[in-house]
């Protein structure tokens, strides 16, 4: 039974009106905010993507139809490499974070002494300011004074250029993302593990199933919905990664655009080069990619369960 089925006993006219219309009275300020600050901007971006807006924000702009889209989709110098980097970055960090996150969540699953402290440690990277995290890793990965090269030296691995190398920069930013966001996956999966019922595990144990068998045939299938939620949440954020890329490599993803993903590219077009029209086009395409991949993930989930 919902609360609105009860008669309103307010006395004054306004109070009665407010109570009768509380559904919209409560919801509309937030809705108005969302519409004005979110829906309108998205519509405006779509409009700008069809114009040649550039330079000053007060400058005149002309409607150019699909020209921006043709230009962007035919741009093999900046656009397509940025798409590829976005796919690479998201794919690699998602895979590593989910596998590593599952392993750590399983380690933490059963209670142990000192559990509280491990959980605190897991929370720290998550809440740390991404820009500060980027700066911190810049020092650690510095080819000359950073500790990273010293540490890999102990294992006989030759020195690496890390963030400074055109080929290695993107991989290094992936490492940073994995450090910061694997804990997020751990927390989500741990919440899922804790809510699992014990019976299937006990039954399998009695039947003599090995640890790996219990994980493969019981825990993992039961955990699949939570795993997909983790992939969705992390995937959206990984696609949109900006802070650590901009903090470590600056404008344009570095001098060779080595870490320029779609988000960094769109930001640079708009705010480093003032090409608002082209930037909007990239953003609309980017937005469609995000929606498309989310849809693919959720529809697969529905098909399976």
């Amino acid at each position: 039974m919902s609360a609105d089925a009860l008669p309103v006993t307010g006395t004054s006219g306004f109070s009665r009106w407010a109570n009768d219309h509380r559904k919209w009275l409560f919801a509309s300020p937030a809705m108005a905010f969302v519409v004005v600050l979110i829906i309108f901007p998205v519509a405006w971006t779509a409009y700008l993507s069809l114009t040649d807006a550039e330079g000053s924000v007060r400058a005149d702009k002309e409607f150019v139809g699909a020209q921006n889209y043709l230009d962007v989709l035919g741009d093999t110098a900046r656009f397509w490499p940025a798409v590829w980097r976005t796919v690479q970055f998201t794919g690699v960090v998602l895979l590593v974070e989910v596998v590593l996150g599952m392993a750590i969540a399983l380690l933490l699953w059963r209670p142990f002494r000192g559990e509280k402290w491990v959980r605190v440690a897991i929370l720290m990277p998550l809440v740390a300011t991404p820009v500060a995290v980027g700066m911190m890793w810049r020092l650690i990965f510095d080819p000359n004074i950073g500790i990273a090269n010293q540490v890999i030296g102990w294992f006989g691995i030759p020195e690496q250029p890390w963030l400074a190398g055109p080929g290695s920069a993107l991989w290094t930013t992936m490492l940073i993302d994995i450090w910061q966001w694997t804990p997020m996956v751990v927390l989500i999966l741990l919440a899922g593990l804790t809510s699992l019922s014990e019976e299937p595990q006990e039954a399998a144990l009695i039947d003599g199933a090995s640890g790996w068998q219990r994980f493969r045939f019981i825990t993992l299938p039961l955990m699949m919905p939570t795993v997909i939620v983790a992939i969705l949440l992390r995937g959206i954020d990984a696609l949109k990664t900006f802070d650590i890329l901009y903090a470590t490599k600056g404008k344009g993803g570095g001098s060779y655009n080595e870490v320029e993903t779609l988000n960094v590219y769109a930001y640079g077009l708009a705010f480093d080069y003032n090409e608002y029209g082209t930037s909007s086009t990239v953003l609309i395409i980017f937005f469609l990619i995000i929606i498309g991949s989310m849809w693919a993930l959720t529809s697969r989930r529905k098909a399976e369960y």
Binding site: I38, V42, T45, K240, Y267, S279, S280
Partner: peptide, 12 residues
């Protein structure tokens, strides 16, 4: 879900 940049452009 919406990338922040796509809001920043029109806001700006």
């Amino acid at each position: 879900v919406i990338p922040g940049v796509s809001l920043l452009v029109p806001w700006f």
